[in-house]
Design a protein around this nucleic acid. Structure first.
Lengths: 186, 186
DNA sequence: GTCTATAGCTTGATAGAC
DNA sequence: GTCTATCAAGCTATAGAC
């Protein structure tokens, strides 16, 4: 593809926005066409598997960028607490300070295609594993590390939902601030 | 209405299930008709405002039953911690042990009608206020009580999302177990 | 690689018989 | 109060020109 009208990256970014705001069933192709600037037929050329293929592609790209930006500090050397603080900061940017919903939530609603479900689960697993690895470094047992990582994910997801419903991002900010101690165990 | 084919209560219960699983945009009238056993036209007779009216009716009914069962222990006399424990137990049943999503989450996705948005916000506010009142009884300042109540809601919502994505209800069970100390402050 | 055009179905909602 | 029948508009997806 020498001259795509819309580059892969901005295409996926626009797709992400729509899936983020409307979920899988709510993301109609008209909405997607408007957001991407491509016609329906062009979208099917880029994503032969249709809407499900678009969702999987978005999830895979998010998993990649999420890993290389948000989760990257977690697997670097240095003080664990400082690394988690850095990741908390990245999380704040990734979710636009709490104003953006998480694809794992929005794309898991309804009856998504099996490929979408699987991609969502992979992404959640990756995030949990990354947090758990840091907790282990802090001396937690495997079971305890998993518990802390899951709790961290629970709080982030919950804060995003509460923020969407209430319009109040303060709970999200508090969750991010408390994130390091949730992982290190104080 | 002397002889409705489907009684108001079971009608709303079926509606709740569909909105719960699919959200507002994903809950099509065909899905709703199948779940309720009524034809589309009959649904419009019962809910002249259409799908938005159905969602609001479900939210109002849930707010009522939620208040009279789940939140009721919170406003009774007696040991605050014991009352929150009772509410945690009720929460577990209300959300089917973590296998059922929360309407506040599913109905806030997409671009719901203003009336739906408002009903969702009212319900969230009622839950937060009920928890905050107990926290105040335990000696928390208004600001601290609000913080604890919001944190409790955040954890419940987050655990339900994680449970839906991963199929693992253990984080939800842990959240319920920790709920009393979240409110009382230990 | 993108487009216009269209197929075929489903959507939310209404009209009117019973 | 529920139904069948229907509407216009929306939907996902495809065909084929450029």
């Amino acid at each position: 593809m020498p001259h795509p009208k819309v580059r892969e990256d901005s295409l996926l970014e626009a797709l992400q926005g729509v899936f983020c705001r409307h979920g899988f069933e709510g993301a109609s192709l008209s909405l997607i066409a408007d957001a991407t600037g491509l016609q329906r037929a062009s979208l099917y050329h880029r994503f032969p598997d249709g809407k499900a293929g678009m969702a999987v592609a978005v999830l895979e790209r998010v998993l990649a960028t999420f890993g290389s930006t948000v989760l990257a500090p977690l697997s670097k050397p240095g003080d664990p607490a400082a690394r988690v603080r850095q990741t908390a900061k990245q999380l704040g940017e990734f979710y636009a300070g709490g104003k953006r919903s998480c694809l794992l939530e929005t794309l898991s609603l309804g009856a998504p295609a099996p490929a979408v479900r699987a991609a969502v689960q992979r992404a959640l697993r990756a995030a949990i594993d990354a947090f758990a690895a840091v907790a282990r470094e802090c001396g937690a047992s495997p079971a305890e590390a998993a518990r802390r990582a899951e709790q961290a994910l629970v709080e982030v997801q919950g804060a995003l939902v509460v923020a969407r419903v209430s319009g109040d991002i303060k709970p999200f900010e508090r969750v991010l601030k408390a994130l390091p101690e949730r992982i290190t165990g104080d």
